[in-house]
Every structure is written in C-alpha cells, then in structure tokens.
Amino acid sequence: MRIRPASLAEAYVEVGPVRRAPWWSPAGGRARLRGALRGRRLRVFLLRWATVLALIGVYEAITRLFFAGSLFLPPASEIFTRGMGVFVEEGVPEALQTTAVEYGIAFAVATLIGLSCGAALGAIPGARGVGRDLLQVLMALPQIAIYPIIILFFGIGPGAKIVFGVTHGVFPIMLSTMSGVGEVEETLPRAIRAMGGGWVAVTWRAVLPSALPSVLTGLRVGAKTCLLGVLLAELLSSVNGTGALVMMYSANGRIPQLYALTLGICVGAFAVNTLMTVVERRLTRWRG
C-alpha cells in the first residue's frame, strides 16, 4: 500500500527513468547492442571514425599532390606500410617499455604526493587560499626551465625522467584535491555528526566521497601532464626511452618510422586518457 503522488511533478518522477539491465548481463548486452546499432550512438560512432578516415585521406591527398617526394612529409600510406615496421625493430619495444615503467612510477608518486598534500591543504581553512595561489603560480611556470637543475641532481638516467614527470603531474592533482576537499558542503559533515559519527566517519563518509569527482578530474589531467613530463625529459637529454628514440629517428632521417613512433605515443596517451575517463564516469555515476 502506498501513497498517491502529491503532485504532477512527483508522479513524473515516480514513473521516472526505467531501470536497464546491466551491460555485462546477456540481456543487457543484447539491449545495448541493439540500441547501439539503431540509435544515435551508432551515428555518432560512425561519424567520428568517418571524420578520422577523411582527415587521413585529406592528408594523403595533400602529401601526394603537393609534397610528392618530400623527405619530411611522407604520405599516410607510407607511414602505415613502411613506418609501422619500427615497432618490431631491435630496441624499440624495450624503449616503449622503459617509458611505460617510468611513467607508471612517476604517476604513482605524483598521485601519492598530490592526494596527501592536496587533502591536507584542503582540510586546513587558512592554508587553502595560500595553497591555491602558490599552486596556480607553480602551474603557470614553464617547468622546462628547471630541467637543467634536475639533471644536476639526478643525472640523465631514469631518476631525472621520473622527477620531471612527477613535477608535471603533481600540481593538477594537488590543486583539484585541495579544492575538492575544501569545498565540501558543511551540511553533510554536520549530518554525520548528528547521527553520531566522529571525524573518521566524517572524513570517510562525507568529505572523501564529496571530493571524489574533483579528485578524479585532477587525476585525469595529472596523468596527461605527467606523461608530458616524462616524454619531455626523454626528448631533452635521455639516452634511452621512447623520447630518445624519437630524437634518434629524427636525426637519422628515418622519417616514416619517426611518424609511426610519434603516432604510437599519441595512441598510448589516448589510451591512458580513455581509461581515466571511463574510471571517472564509473565512479561518479550518481551525478547522472
């Protein structure tokens, strides 16, 4: 037995959005597939990839028509046929792996420092304003300027690369964690306290979930800038890793291979970004 809706608006909400079977269940999977083939999403999907293919075609046409025989602008077809071989050349998989490992370490360290320092700054009311100003100045600086100093301290080995990745990745994470923790509405911690929760419950059940969307956005941005830092370090000075390889191919004039490698880096960055976006969307589904 239940009460009738009090108003039209309420009636609408009660009939409200239909629950769908989850995507991983057979029925849900079929429904998603059917919907995808029929609906707007398929059109978006097709349009997206058609655009990519079209751009590749335009590039191919331009290079063939206006830059035929040019050393520095190989047509797309040549990049795919000759250049892709680079990924099985000796030393290349190892270089990619080196970069991936160093990037992983740098991002983990940046996350650790960014989350802890950001949460601490956000939790202290007085520190928030100062912290924000300072971080914004630090983020605006071209960090490339301090790279020579980093080399002084860490040499040109993996140490410098990781440190440079950390300095690039840590500030976005710290800034967004700080604002996420700092801007928690007062009402939710108060409700927790009224229901008998201590500071652990307030932190765990009110502050952290409130800050999560902002933190995840920071992590996504930080993942990108961290990779930027690692690659920059490799391009500038390193003797191994993907960036060093890119420099080598450029110097040696193996242009299709250079393009293929660059494309590979882009695909890697894209994959990281997609992963972060998916995680972000999964964890904050309640926002709708």
Partner: peptide, 26 residues
C-alpha cells in the same frame, strides 16, 4: 534525530543507503 533544512542527503547514496547510514554509524 535531526532533519535538516536542506535535507542533507548524500547524493552518491541511493535512497535506501541514505536511510541506512544512520544505522551504519551505530
């Protein structure tokens, strides 16, 4: 027990979980 002016509901919790939290904390 307290009912707040702006309801103080937890947006990431379902209706049931929003009620449950009072018991969870106990």
């Amino acid at each position: 027990a307290y009912v707040f002016q702006d309801f103080a509901l937890f947006p990431w919790r379902t209706a049931r979980a929003n009620v449950e939290i009072a018991l969870q904390l106990k």
